[in-house]
Design a protein around this nucleic acid. Structure first.
Lengths: 228, 228, 228, 228
DNA sequence: GATGAATGAGGATTCATTCAT
DNA sequence: TATGAATGAATCCTCATTCAT
């Protein structure tokens, strides 16, 4: 049993910092466990008891930090998204000038793939096959924020495209990426690399004709992508 | 649309079989109900009671025809696949000569999209996000058979490609199609048409560079696809 | 009678364990309930809901402590066996010198009968008419261990008997005892005593001719048994 | 509800013979099936559907002849008892003069064992471990009728015994026989024979001291039984 | 009579969630 | 806070029994 050093009913308002800290640790612990369990079983089949067990705490403790199963998934998704943003997400916006498409794809997708290798729960949650009603909603929001980012980037390249089309292209690209990610994650080692390349090729060939010809993109390079 | 055999008791024809008739009708009814429920909730979250209720029968009746939930999904998947094969599945093999890629894509994907508009459960099942163990197995088999078909077709165009690459390309194409299908099904009316086109464009641009230049494929047509 | 730990919250002693305490109490409670229900309905017809109800808890609580109905029966059987061993089981081995048969029978059977008066579930489980597969296995193990003990004792009296015969005799004696036990338990008061005597007589007369004549067993005593 | 076969409002008394005949065949079929299933699974675990299937008829048909599961067991038990009586049951009463005990035991038990080899369902039903309430009652009746027969026989040998004791002895003997039967049936071939002998020995030694010494029973023979 | 479909209450078991300690 | 016991509705599935044909 974990000894509770805080249990003394001292009427003095004692160090709330400590509490927060421990709470945060617990939450992280629980979210890690949730990530594992969701990845293994999917959202619906995952049980809160399994998550608590995986986290090494009792079910009661879990509910001390999350009001219900849904909230765990939402918080986990949010944190993963945030983690992503913190580490690589700004790269493609920070870049002052437009990059050539293939560079752009490498710059964006390589870390995104890498991130998902390390955080497979992200794919599980963001996909949202499975996740019922309310949750889907919540993750749709995340989806939409990704979408918005993509549109933003595309818009810098294609400022004249009608918004509807821009949206459709972004949506299509994101969809291809998400599906491709599953494909990539479903393989290991060299195969995985090959599939990652393949997905980038798909996106390159899909998007290339849309992008304006510019000097940032050497012909040789494009040709290489175009006919492997 | 699935014909409702329960509807009007037309006094015309249909007499020869008696005993099994009611049962067959019930099975169809149950599978229709299952399709609805699976589409709405996904496999894991779907309950056999919900399926029975949707079919307007008692749970016991359901179990008279199916040993368990899994069997329902498998039978439903099998029937949908069969229905598909009966109606359009042979088209792409029946074609004597190789078609130009865009025609091929239209010929194959248009009916496939159309079929999935009418049978949204197919997408749910074939995707198999969610579906546990044994089922995944079962549908993996369907997936693999589709894959084999695609490889077969591609092989007629690209006889010199190393098998591993052929397999990867087929897998990638199928993945794009399946993901695209979800995207398409997620929209209605004109939007849906636009997305269907978009997916065909993705696949066209992905596959076109792989396909040999030949007279079946007029330059003008390809150009149109290449830069819309 | 099983002591009821739930009864009066005597402020004396019993404090060292807290957490597990309630659980242990529940388990005992559930096993008591199971004993009652198994005795009343037999294993197959007993329902876990009935056991839970009898124990005054919800079905969920039962499953917090036992994975399934089988486990309850096995645990109950194990505990009863253990309880038996703790209280009287060693008597017949502890006895340094071979006793005369009638003393032996009294020493062994009287407490065994008494134990079964208080724990009628033991007979239900040990008999295993009814209990399907895995359970039967489990209780067969108990049966075999009893058998081994009996053979052991008989062997000290009859070291020259061929093992096959020894085994058959032990098996027969145990069978008679078990059947007799049912007979005894089916009666009350004086009748019960008479039947208990009768069973001992049966066993005495069955085994006596096998046992060597020795001075431990006065003729008079034997004659009394031999012709009542 | 059990259909009343007499209910058809046909004013003409039409060939009831044929109907009866077919019905009897069905009933026999069903009872055979029931015997098999009860023997395999015990009464509680046996299902009417399983019985119908084993009989090669539909569940509906079963219920055309029996109002419920219980009735099947009762009828089966009754028929087996009757079959027993018809074939050997009268032997021991028909015998004008009292036989020596060992002859009597051979005469009675050998065919009884043989009968049970061929009709293992008899043991299952008569034992009535398992069988709930009402049924047990019913089979208790059969048990009592057997008991009465035994008492009757014993009474011819021991006319002076107080009825209570007579009853107890008969009950004990029957109990030993039933338990012994299980033991015997649980073995095959030579083992089975050995156990059958052993049970007869048990009964012989139990009953012998009760029976009056008489010239029907040669000393040599008795000695053989007494100390094998 | 026979069939097989239909029923629905009930049984084992699970799981999100709450509560006493 | 942490614990783990408690809950009970909901799940999947079974089975005795009934009903339409």
């Amino acid at each position: 049993m974990a000894p509770d050093p805080e249990s003394a009913p001292t009427p003095t308002a004692a160090k709330p910092r400590r509490r927060q800290a421990r709470g945060e640790r617990r939450i992280a612990q629980l979210l890690d466990a949730a990530a594992t369990v969701f990845t293994t079983s999917g959202y619906t089949a995952a049980t809160t008891n399994a998550i608590a067990r995986e986290a090494g705490v009792s079910p009661g403790t879990l509910y001390q930090f999350f009001p219900n199963k849904e909230a765990i998934a939402i918080e986990l998704g949010g944190r993963l998204l945030e983690r992503w943003r913190e580490s690589h997400g700004t790269a493609l916006v920070a870049a002052g000038q437009p990059l050539p498409l293939d560079t752009l794809l490498d710059d964006v997708l390589d870390p995104l793939f890498a991130f998902n290798y390390d955080n497979p729960a992200f794919a599980v949650l963001i996909h949202g096959h499975d996740t019922p009603g309310q949750i889907a909603q919540e993750f749709n929001a995340i989806h939409l924020s990704l979408l918005a980012r993509i549109e933003e980037v595309f818009a810098t390249y294609l400022p004249d495209l009608p918004p509807a089309e821009l949206s459709r292209i972004a949506n299509t690209a994101l969809t291809i990426f998400k599906a491709g990610l599953d494909l990539v994650l479903a393989h290991e080692g060299e195969e995985r690399q090959s599939y990652a390349s393949e997905i980038k090729t798909v996106l390159y060939r899909y998007l290339d004709p849309l992008f304006p010809e510019d000097e940032h993109c050497p012909v040789a390079q494009r040709a290489a992508r175009g006919t492997p």
